[in-house]
Amino acid sequence: MSPIKFLTRTRNGRSLDWTDWMSYAYLTVGLFLMFGPVLWLVASSFKTEAALTEFPPSLLPYGQKAVAVPGEEKPKPVYRVKLPDGTTKELPEVRRIGLVATHVDPAKPEEFIRVNVNDREPVREFRLATENYTDLAGKLKFGTYLWNSVFITVVATLLTLLFNSMAAFALSKYKFAGRKGVFLLILSTLMVPPAIVLVPNFLVISELGLLNSLWGVIWPAVATPTGVFLLRQYMLTIPDELLEAARMDHASEWKIYWRIVLPLAAPALAVLAIFSVMWRWNDFLWPLIVLSKNEHFTLQLALNAFQGDLVTQWNYLLAMTVITLLPVTIVFAFLQKYITQGIASAGVK
C-alpha cells in the first residue's frame, strides 16, 4: 500500500472523499484554536521578563546569550558588535555608560573595546526561563496558596465521596417512606444556582465562624446533587441479593455499606472523585467571598488578585497560571475516558 493511500484510508477501508478532507480540516483548525492558546501560554511562561515585553513576540522563548567573563562575578550579556575595522564579533558587555558600552573578549580580558550602543545588537539563543518557576517558591506566599488549594481539593473530595455515597446508598438500597421525596429534594438543589444564594450563604458562613477558613469553602461543597445522582444510579445495579447475603453473614448495615457496596461502587466513585477534584481545584466565586485574607487565598484567588495588580509581573503570573492548570491537564490526559463517559451518562458537569 502506498503511503498516501495508507494515510488517506478511512475506518471502513474506502479512501477519503472531499467530505472527509473537510472534516479533518475542520478538526485541525479546532486543534489550533483549542490547544493553541494554552500552548502559547506555556511557551510564554518560559520567556524572560524582557522577552515578554517584546513586540512582536517571538514564537519560542529566547533569551540573551550570556557568558562568563574572567574577573566578573555574573555572566555578562553577549552582543554582536561592529568593530572599528568593519568586522563583527560576538562579545560580552562588561559595563555601559550612556551611549557607550564597554565590551571585552573573554580570550583577551585585558583588552577593552568601546563601542556606540547603536553599533551592536543583542545575541539571542533558545533558553527556557525556568527562573519564572523556581523564583515562585519563595515569592508571593506561593507555597501557601498551593497548600490551600491542595487542602481544599483533597479534603472536600474525600468528604464528598463519603457523604454522597452514604446518601446514594440509602436512596438505592433501602425502601422507606419518603425515599422518593428526599431524592427529588436533593435533585432540586441542582436548580439552585450558587449566585442566587451568595448573600445569605455569606451570613451562614460568618455565623458558623467559617469566614476566612478553608472549611468555609469545604463544607458547603461536599454535598453535591450530581454526586448523589451518579452514585445512586450505579448502586442500583448492585444486586440486592449481595446485601441479603451479607446480612445473613452477620454484617451490620454500616459494614454492608463500607465493605460491600463501597468497593463495588468504585468505578462510579472514581468518576465522582475526578469531577470533585476538578470542581474544587477550579472553584472561584465561592472562595472569593469566603476567603478575603491573603494568607487563605487559593491559587485561583491568588491569580485573580495578582493579575489585578497595577504592575502585572507577567512572567510570574504566567508561570503560576501554568502550575494552576497543570493538575487538571494531567488528570485529563490520563482519565479522559472516565470524564467524558461520566458526563455523557449523567449529563452534568
Binding site: 444486586p239 441479593e241 447475603a245 451479607a246 445473613m248 460491600i260
Partner: peptide, 10 residues
C-alpha cells in the same frame, strides 16, 4: 444459611 439464585458472591 442461604444459597442465593445468583450465588450473591462478593
Amino acid at each position: 444459611a442461604m444459597v442465593f439464585q445468583s450465588y450473591a458472591l462478593y
